[in-house]
Design a protein around this nucleic acid. Structure first.
Lengths: 199, 199, 199, 199
DNA sequence: AATGAATGAGGGTTCATTCAT
DNA sequence: GATGAATGAACCCTCATTCAT
């Protein structure tokens, strides 16, 4: 799945991560036991504890990994466009992420409502920097743009929280509307948010 | 916290609800066992099952109760104002709710990220109409206003999700800013959202 | 169902017995709780203990009642025949009982393997003679016949055990043969048993 | 009680089996809890579930083991005799088994009334072939004899049911007669059964 | 006689964690 | 590093029984 995961030295770790992911999204996190994970991964019980502290630990690693993956893909996709208007670049990223989540809802199910500010701040902190902090890249990109805003961090925060919290119920349950129906409203709101905060 | 709960007939039920609430916000829901609850409430284990089906059941009753309480208080407070502009009435309700949550953060801790669309829809449905469905009142109020909007349900949905998700981290962790700092941005965003959807 | 059961004074007792019976044969004895019984019977929990000591008590009453009922019916049927040969009278009773069990397998399910010597001796002893001891009638009839046998009690014992134990699996599971297939063998065996013990 | 059980690899399993057996015949199966078993066996509760699915599982293993043991011993003893008459060989086996049960009544108490057709069929089937299916040997021996019978399976079935059901009350309670008194009658009946079915 | 809320010991079962190999 | 048998505390839940009304 990525550089650090699948090298030969960490076959067991990778097996544990991948099978834990499958089980988490299939049975739910609470119903998945460490026994389940090691059995599916084909390793011994004790081996789990060589790589992870406990179930929360492996869960956090998975969430972080998935989030970073999506952001990374979003950036790559953005680079291939010719968009110059900053607001439209943000809209593009938003749309890209929404489509990712729509396509692979397992990520939403895993992160529940945690695909938000808390995830970035807390997970990133606890990590031993074996993963890039793409969120910082995102913020910095924001600040590098020509247009300046009253408070960049709060603006980014509000956009992320707004998008992730509204898309959760829409994608998973189609409530109160499908993502397709919802999107125009989301984009309009983001534009309005940014416009309001322009300096 | 009062009328419905503490009549004499339901002393045990009340004791269970109150002590479950304390434990949920102190230790977290997952870490709280039914044994913990009955011990703290000073009743026998079997008694729990006379009043609640399982832990989820008591949790849902608590969340519902808290949500309805806040909405109810917000309406009462609104009635005492002289606000006529519809947007400002919504802002008032929002502010009132935010202040409630700020004052009693236990509610946020209890509902975690569940104080949102799903809660209203699901919790309200599962209840035996012993509580008013205040959410419907809220929507209907919206629709009774003079100003019309493109899609009222989506607008309400976006506002609620936006407010509850942004205030969570702010109130509980002061991240990325305190509620006081954040409020003006939130209000501006709500005004912009509503303006954008005016017909 | 019978004289002592359904008089007005014992409505509750009757309700408990009948509903316990239904539950025992539906869910099995072990899986039936006293709560189940009182709920189905529409009486309060404490009422159960006014009439029965515990679950074993009500179970024994039921078995006794059912056994006596069958024997009683068998005797009545025999009286209507013109059979004079003693062995054939015994065969007739046997056949009648087998047909009863075949028709209402619930009795077999209730008594499990207990429809045998043990039932008669033990249940009868514990009972407060509110039921006729039809088994004694059966033995006495045997002894009143013209033909004498080496040891009447042992002969009756062997016949009863033989019949009840062989029919159990046959009727309930059709193993190793259906009752229809099995009957001729059973009758031949009974005749042989009796012949062997003639004085 | 030996070969298969007590090798070093299965010390815990053996301890569980032996102590479960003791408790089953002392307190009865229903009154014996898994807690009782593990406590007496001196192992942790979870260990039980490493070796057995539940209480029924360990019970079935015990019954199977005991039944096979007795049949196996009976065959060995028969091989040492010079009996050639087939009926007398069957009588010998019967007598041997009765003496075993008389000597070790615990087996009867354990199997209750289940030492019968159902046991053979069901227990044997559920087992992972780590035990010989001695019942089949018994039937085949029957069929390999020179004398032919109308229906071998029914004949074997009737003999087994007859013997096990009659000896139960006799051995455990001496009712209606001691085994010594009863035996001649049983043997006569078996001889009569077989004679009746000869072709 | 009848009730049913309350009890609390005890049931079966799970599972994170350890540690000798 | 890797194992997996063993642990035992903790879990949820049941239910026979009591007793104040």
């Amino acid at each position: 799945m990525s550089s650090k995961w699948d090298n030969n030295k960490n076959q067991k770790r990778t097996a544990l991560l991948e099978n834990a992911f499958d089980l988490f999204i299939t049975k739910g996190i609470n119903k998945t036991s460490i026994s389940d994970i090691v059995e599916k991964a084909g390793v011994a019980k004790g081996t789990f504890y060589l790589y992870f502290k406990d179930k929360d630990d492996i869960r956090n690693r998975l969430i972080l990994h998935k989030i970073n993956h999506i952001f990374s893909e979003a950036e790559k996709a953005l680079a291939k466009t010719t968009l110059t208007d900053f607001t439209e670049r943000i809209i593009f990223i938003t749309g890209f992420i929404l489509d990712c989540l729509q396509e692979d809802t397992s990520i939403l199910a895993l992160t529940a409502k945690n695909l938000n500010w808390g995830s970035f701040k807390r997970v990133v902190k606890s990590d031993k920097n074996d993963e890039l902090n793409l969120y910082d890249l995102y913020v910095s990109q924001f600040e590098n743009g020509r247009q300046k805003y009253k408070n960049t961090e709060i603006l980014v925060y509000m956009i992320i929280e707004f998008i992730t919290s509204t898309c959760y119920s829409s994608i998973l349950y189609g409530e109160p509307a499908s993502l397709t129906e919802l999107k125009p409203y989301l984009y309009d709101t983001i534009r309005a948010m940014m416009k309001t905060q322009e300096l």
